[in-house]
Design a protein around this nucleic acid. Structure first.
Lengths: 332, 332
DNA sequence: TTGTATGCGTTATCAT
DNA sequence: ATGATAACGCATACAA
C-alpha cells in the first residue's frame, strides 16, 4: 500500500485554512461556518480523501473497530453457530461504520485479547461464548473494555443477551408432558456453559409446574463422549423412558443413530426431541422436534447493543430473544 | 477504555535513560550497550510492557492489520471451510503481531472492502474464495492492495495458493480406473469457481493419461439443485455407470442418499468417491473414499505468504499444498 | 468562527 | 553508546 496520499494538512494549505478547521469540517464537531465547511467537504469529495485512521486512533483513542471473540476450535459441528453470529455482527457493524476484528480465546487464555486491548485497537468487544466461571468476562470488566456477552453472565453489570433457552426447554418439555409422555429422559453434557444449565432448568421446571413425576434416574448431565451418550441411552430405555430429550443437536444426532441401531423406531417405539436445532448436525436428523433459534439475529442484536452503548445511548443491560418450537415426526 | 498503560517514555524516566534508548533496546536496531539493554529488557519483562502498535504504526505508516475476505453466506455446509481457513490465518497473524479483520464480499460487491482500503485500516488482505471472472482480485490489484488469494487466480502477478485439486482428482480417478472401473460418472456443478474446473480437469486427465475410454454422456457439470443431481444420477446409472465420482461432499451427500433410496448398495452395486472430503457433510457419508485437504494449514500458509510479502521477504508468488486420498468402504 | 499549539507513543535522524 | 528532537496525521483545548 504505497499510499502517498494527502493529509488534512495538505488540504488546509490548499484551501488556505488551518488543519483544525479541516478536521472540524470532517468530524462535524465544534463550530464551523457552513460556507467553509461546504468548501472543504467539496474539495474532499473531489479528491476522494479519507482520514488516516491510524493517526485518528492515536490522537483520539478511538478505533471504529469491534472485536468479536470466538472460542477455540473444538468441534466442527459448533462452528456454524459462531460463524452465523459473526456474520450477523458484521452486518450491523458495517452498517454503523464499524469494522470487525476477530480474536480467539478458550475462555481462560486472554493473550490475544490482551494485545487488542493494550494496543487500543478496538472500541469494544462481543463475546460469543460464556462460561460459568466468568473468567473471560471478568477480565474484560477489569480492563474497562466495553463489551456485550452472547450468553448468560452471572453479573448484572455485564451487557448480555441470549435466546430464551430456559423457556424453550420448558415449553418443549411441557409439550411432551401434555402428549402423555411421563418418562422423559434428559441427555446433556458437562461443558462449562450456562446454556446447558439453562436447558436442564427448563426441563426441570416444566415437570414442577405440571406437577409431573420427576425421575432422577432418567437424567444424564455428564455425557462427554459418544460412548457415554450411548450408555446413558441404554440405561434410560431400561428404566422405561418413553421419550428422549436431548440438550442439543450434537447429542441428539448420536442418540438418534444409537436408537436406530438398537432397532427402535421413532416415534412409534420412542419419541425424541432436542432443545437445540443446530444448523448442520440436523442434516441426518431433520425429522426431530426441536427448539429453533435465529443465530444471525443474535449476532445482529449483540452488535447493536454494543454500538448503542459505545454511542452512549444505552439503556438495556440485558436482552432475551425469542425461540420457536418446530414440531416434527419424532414426537408424533 | 481508560487504559493507563505505561509508555516507553515512562520506562525511560524510571530507568534514567532516554526514550530512544528504550526503543532501541526493544527493536534491536541501532547500537546499544548490552548492559543497559539487559536492564531495560528486564524491566520490560517485569512490568509486562508491550509497545503500542498504533503509535508504532503511525510512525511506520503501517496498521498491523490484515483483512480476510469471506464470501457471503449461501450455504451452511460451506461455512466450516471458511471458518477453518480463518482460524488458520488468525493463528499465524497473531504469532506475527498482526490482528485480523473480517469483511464479506460476494465477489462483485466491494463496498465493504472499499472502506477498509480507503480508511487505510489494513496492510493487506487474504481472499478466501476466487471466481473465474477475477473481478474481486482485479479490484484489489487496481487499488494496490497487497493480497494473497486462496484458490486459483488467472493472473501471474497475483500471489495465490491452493491445494492440488487437479492432482487429487486425477489420482483419485486413476485409482478408480486401476480398480477396473471404466464407466466413472462425474457429478459437478457450475458455480463460478476455478476449483470445480480443476477437479473436472483431473478427472479428464486421468482418463487421458491412462488411455481409458472417455464417455461424455457420463459427465454432468451443471448440477445446481438437488433434483438436478438426482436426475443426473439416474441417467448415469441407465448409461451403465459403475462408479459415481462427485465434485464435492455436498453433491456426494445428495447422490449417496439417492443411491440408497434407489435400493442400490455401495460398494457392491456401484462404487462412489468424492473429490473433496468436506468437513461436515460427511457426517452422513463417512464411509466414502475421498480426497482430504488440510484447510487450517491452507489458512496458515496464506497468511504466512502475505506477511512475508509485507515484510519484503517474498519470493514465492504461488504455492500448491498437498492432498491426501483416503480410501474407504465405498470403493472396496 | 477560525487558527495555534500541544499531545498521542513510537521511530529515526541527528548530535554528543 | 546514548540523548535530544523532529516527524507520523489527526484531535482538541485554548486563544484570537
Amino acid at each position: 500500500m504505497e499510499n502517498k496520499s494527502i493529509t488534512i494538512n495538505d488540504i488546509a494549505n490548499e484551501l488556505g485554512v488551518s488543519t483544525s478547521t479541516v478536521s472540524r469540517a470532517i468530524s462535524g464537531k465544534g463550530r464551523i461556518g457552513s460556507e467553509t465547511r461546504d468548501r472543504i467537504l467539496a474539495y474532499i469529495k473531489e479528491k476522494d480523501f479519507h482520514l488516516n485512521t491510524v493517526a485518528q486512533n492515536l490522537a483520539g483513542s478511538k478505533t471504529g473497530n469491534i472485536a468479536i471473540v470466538l472460542p477455540d476450535i473444538n468441534n466442527l459441528e459448533e462452528m456454524p453457530y459462531y460463524q452465523m453470529c459473526m456474520y450477523g455482527a458484521m452486518e450491523v457493524a458495517s452498517a454503523n461504520g464499524f469494522d470487525l476484528m476477530i480474536v480467539t480465546s478458550d475462555g481462560k487464555d486472554t493473550r490475544y485479547l490482551d494485545r487488542l486491548i493494550r494496543n487500543r485497537k478496538i472500541d469494544g468487544m462481543i463475546v460469543t461464548r460464556t462460561y460459568t466461571d466468568g473468567r473471560l468476562t471478568n477480565y474484560l470488566k477489569l480492563n474497562g473494555v466495553p463489551f456485550v456477552a452472547v450468553g448468560k453472565v452471572d453479573d448484572e453489570d455485564v451487557m448480555q443477551l441470549e435466546h430464551d433457552h430456559v423457556g424453550a426447554a420448558k415449553e418443549l418439555t411441557t409439550l411432551l408432558l401434555m402428549k402423555g409422555l411421563h418418562k422423559i429422559a434428559y441427555l446433556g453434557d458437562d461443558r462449562e456453559q450456562w446454556l446447558n444449565r439453562n436447558r436442564y432448568e427448563g426441563y426441570e421446571r416444566a415437570h414442577r409446574d405440571a406437577n409431573a413425576p420427576f425421575d432422577n434416574s432418567l437424567v444424564y448431565r455428564r455425557l462427554n463422549s459418544v460412548s457415554a451418550i450411548e450408555a446413558a441411552l441404554e440405561e434410560a430405555i431400561k428404566a422405561g423412558a418413553d421419550c428422549i430429550l436431548c440438550q442439543d443437536d450434537l447429542i441428539c444426532k448420536f442418540a438418534y443413530k444409537k436408537l436406530i441401531s438398537l432397532g427402535l423406531d421413532i416415534p412409534s417405539d420412542i419419541k425424541m426431541a432436542s432443545c437445540y436445532e443446530g444448523s448442520v448436525s440436523f442434516d441426518s436428523i431433520t425429522n426431530i422436534t426441536a427448539a429453533r433459534f435465529d443465530i444471525l439475529e443474535l449476532g445482529r442484536s449483540a452488535c447493536k447493543m454494543l454500538i448503542d452503548s459505545l454511542k452512549g445511548k444505552n439503556e438495556v443491560k440485558s436482552k432475551i430473544l425469542e425461540y420457536q418450537i418446530v414440531l416434527k415426526e419424532s414426537t408424533k
